[in-house]
Design a protein around this nucleic acid. Structure first.
Lengths: 338, 338
DNA sequence: CAGAGGCGATTACAATTCCGGATGGCAGCG
DNA sequence: CGCTGCCATCCGGAATTGTAATCGCCTCTG
């Protein structure tokens, strides 16, 4: 009933060669096979496609019509085959990743572009959310892995340090800070800061830093919207503090970016994944791309000799790649929101 | 290697249903068969098209791409099938017909339109030429039949009367003749006539008529180009004489048409075909359409009571449908040119 | 007119593919 | 833990496809 592409190929060959035998050798088939294919076509369509009289094979009007359609179909078919073959390289599978705005602003795009180029047949789903949501989804094994700020690791999760990045002050260029140079926040005190809301542990961490280092906050706006925060800073005298890896590509025209100094202030990002299962190959591959890109961008702040000197050792003996799965904690600590 | 349309149909079904079993029953197949088809596709393409994990069938990016192409291919394929099936009705074969301008000006188009509508899969080739050429081609069995002026039938031809049509005077409307009324050519004498060249027997017949009926020819132009003749008559005071069936559709605005009277002047058209072979079914069918149309148009001149009165009996006992094949003549008479 | 040769149709048989039922693995669910 | 739904796989028979050989028709040629 449905007919094969071979039928059309042979038909087109006969049409163009005006000969069954010529078509047969062109298509590496026997004259007999070609004859049978054409006859099958004619039978199923109920139409003669060629007149084989006078020693000449001539297409009928129906043959002409079918030829015009056939070449389109075959061209499409071939294009489809080629296009789909292009997906053959690289890994295969699905990949669901949870990332905070910290990762999605600068790190994600290059890593993602490289990964899809290398692995076109992996179905990718990136979820941008705050760490509370992400942690929950990882524990439910809804996503392959997530990158979140370091926190007390709840059960069912496996985690390791992903990146240590400096916190940076982000301000309006008109405020006159020299882009990229370390800054002592206390020297600017009192400051007007845009900070995340109370549920976000980041808020507490930042306030603690300020209080401990003689930074008085003149005014404060709570914004849990990253795009709005950046826009507000770019258009006003409000400032904010963000993870450095997120701002590594800024050149100082939209935002002035200055690492906090005296004392430096570091943020640890950790990778979390469901403890009960091993990471899929696409997840591993994408993670390595992501990590490479994050470290490359982070060198904007740690690569310089002066900045490198200020890098503290990894905290509390937990090095990169070291698992810290906790199976049965006494109580479940609430994950912080970023 | 080349894959069948069934593959794509089943693939599309799976893609849309997101389920192998649902696709199977939608396409009247078994789940097993669907699974095998998809696997064959994946193997030949070297790409996974669906991820069958978590109890969910989800297309991969390659699956998405293939789906987009597939629906186009299937749509095209279906359209092609439907279109070609449309050629299934009616007769099939080839048809080569030779006609003079006398037939092609008014008779051919309606007959041809009806014939191709009824028999879409007949390859038609109409050759417009003068009778000398046509007779030769019929004898060489290059064409199925031709319509030519009556003449002494050479060997190898079978002929019968096709149509008796009155000769009509064609003139410029500004000359003031009443369109459609019989006219006595002698009353217009002397006349300025456009006539075919000497090789055409028509020329001799017309001159004979004029001479025998007191028509003096004031001036004469030889034109063997029908379009040019009609155009010249429409734009000047030159007149010509043409077979009536050719001018039956004219309404008198471009050309005034008047049957010759006192005496009337008839042209016999005959059908000629190769004697050694019987006419093909398409040829018979087309001929009957052509004949019906010719007679319909001819009634414009013979249908009226007065005109019918002037119709002479068929000449020399050769009625319509009567063959006059001559196998072995003494000498081969030169066919006249029309 | 006879013979040769080209070409498509047909036939018979072999290889392959297709199809459907049965079975097994896996995950979700009560 | 059994049940159920779903897909993969295996297997045997049916159908299709491909091949080689042959036939019939036509053309060409001498």
């Amino acid at each position: 009933m449905p007919g094969s592409v071979r039928d059309l190929t042979l038909f087109v060959a006969v049409y163009e060669e005006r000969s069954f035998t010529a078509a047969a050798e062109r298509e590496r088939a026997t004259q007999s096979g070609v004859s049978q294919h054409i006859r099958k076509l004619e039978d199923t369509l109920g139409v003669r496609l060629f007149t084989r009289s006078k020693g000449q094979v001539q297409p009928t009007p129906a043959g002409d019509a079918l030829y015009l359609k056939s070449i389109d179909i075959l061209r499409l078919y071939d294009a489809a085959k080629k296009a789909v073959r292009g997906y053959g390289k690289g890994l295969e599978g699905q990949l669901v990743v949870g990332l905070m705005p910290t990762m999605t602003r600068s790190v994600l795009a290059p890593a993602l572009a490289r990964f899809v180029a290398d692995n076109p047949n992996v179905a990718i789903n990136v979820i941008e959310a705050y760490s509370a949501t992400l942690t929950q989804q990882v524990r439910a094994a809804e996503i392959d892995f997530a990158i979140v700020p370091a926190f007390a690791c709840p059960p069912g999760l496996s985690s390791r340090l992903f990146l240590r990045t400096p916190e940076v002050l982000v301000s309006n260029p008109s405020l006159g800070l020299a882009h990229g140079t370390p800054v002592r926040l206390a020297a600017l005190s009192p400051v007007k800061l845009v900070l995340p809301g109370r549920p976000n542990t980041r808020r507490h961490t930042l306030e603690t830093y300020c209080a401990a280092n003689g930074v008085s906050i003149e005014r404060l706006i709570e914004l849990d919207a990253m795009l709005a925060t950046l826009d507000l800073v770019a258009r006003s005298e409000w400032m904010t503090v963000l993870p450095g890896v997120m701002m590594a590509l800024d050149d100082g025209t939209q935002h002035r970016v200055n690492p906090l100094a005296e004392p430096p202030f570091w943020l640890d990002l950790v990778l979390i994944e469901p403890a009960q299962r091993t990471m899929t190959a696409p997840a591993r591959s994408f993670l390595s791309q992501l990590e490479a890109e994050a470290q490359r961008l982070n060198r904007r702040w740690t690569g310089g000799v002066a900045a490198a000197a200020g890098t503290p050792p990894a905290p509390s003996g937990r090095g990169r790649g070291e698992k810290l799965t906790r199976r049965r904690p006494r109580r479940r600590p609430r994950p912080d929101a970023s």
